[in-house]
């Protein structure tokens, strides 16, 4: 800006525009941050304070007892274990499902682009179709499948469901990334004597981190945040944290404990928030990343 020169009048109006812009931005920032503030604030108050003070008032002290309660004391249905076991359910569901769907998506994308076979595009179109199938459509057949396999109401069942459902998306990601990798690379490696899996492991995978980040973030948030599959295919102790949190909020024994509900919500959202904060900038970078140089 400093290398522009304005007449005084021009400078004035530019300044006013700028101030207006800032004011608007701040206003919207407050507007969007307010609910988050209320949730965090409330989770740090005790019930007295909630009843006594305003919704927007700052908590008197940092009181983590609601968090502790939500983590391992609160009653969910008849069991008073807090969210902890369900948190681990979600972890043991999400990590393998993310890993499996990402790996399979990478392999499928690689096969579809670099080992073009008859009908490869047709198959890709069909897989792509999977992205548009709503959850609700697959619930019934999926329940039957899980029943036949004998893994209803287990974490394994959810791992399978999410791996299969996620495959359409991960394949799309990897396929679109791998079309930008020149085919000559694979041809050169073939002449050098590398086979399908060696090329994948030694050449293609090392070029994939940007899109792996995208796939992992996408899959992790999808799977962690999923409610429908979790509620449909599991009950009681095998439920993921999203379902457990819902039940925790709905289980009322006497007084409504808003601070515990808020803490539970924050605990549930923490892992996805964490992933976004740590890897968020790689997400955009990965989505826009093109092919390789050299």
């Amino acid at each position: 800006m400093s290398d522009h020169t304005y007449s005084p009048a021009q400078g004035q109006s530019v300044l006013w525009m700028r101030l207006l812009l800032w004011a608007l931005l701040i206003l919207f920032a407050i507007w969007f941050l307010l609910p988050a503030y209320v949730v965090v604030g409330t989770s740090l108050k005790d019930l007295e304070e909630i009843r006594g003070g305003s919704l927007l008032a700052l908590p008197h002290e940092l009181n983590f007892s609601a968090w502790k309660h939500a983590w391992n004391e609160a009653c969910i249905g008849v069991r008073c274990t807090g969210l902890e076991p369900y948190f681990w359910n979600s972890v043991f569901m999400a990590l393998p499902a993310v890993f499996i769907s990402t790996l399979l998506g990478a392999l499928t994308g690689y096969a579809l682009t670099k080992f073009q076979f008859r009908g490869a595009n047709m198959i890709f179109a069909l897989i792509l179709f999977g992205c548009f199938v709503p959850f609700q459509v697959v619930i019934l057949p999926m329940a039957q499948t899980l029943g036949r396999l004998g893994i209803t109401n287990t974490v394994y069942g959810l791992i399978l469901v999410h791996s299969v459902y996620g495959l359409a998306f991960t394949t799309l990601f990897f396929r679109n990334y791998y079309v930008t990798i020149p085919d000559e690379l694979v041809r050169a490696a073939t002449i050098d004597g590398a086979g399908f899996f060696t090329i994948f492991r030694r050449i293609i995978l090392p070029l994939s981190p940007p899109i792996i980040v995208v796939s992992v973030i996408w899959q992790f948030t999808q799977i962690w945040n999923d409610f429908l599959f979790g509620a449909s295919f599991t009950t009681g102790g095998a439920q993921p944290i999203t379902v457990a949190m819902n039940n925790l909020v709905n289980t009322t024994t006497g007084v409504k404990q808003y601070n515990v509900d808020m803490a539970a919500a924050l605990i549930t959202a923490a892992p996805t928030l964490f992933v976004y904060i740590v890897a968020g900038r790689y997400f955009v970078r990965g989505l826009t990343a093109g092919s390789v140089k050299g």
């Binding site: 000559e184 690379l185 041809r187 050169a188 073939t190 002449i191 050098d192 030694r202 050449i203 140089k293």
Partner: peptide
């Protein structure tokens, strides 16, 4: 198979393994 033909090829884009 290409690897058993005892040939080597140089490509227009060089196709060097970037990693």
């Amino acid at each position: 198979h290409p690897k058993d033909r005892d040939i080597a090829m140089v490509f227009q884009s060089y196709a060097l393994y970037p990693n």
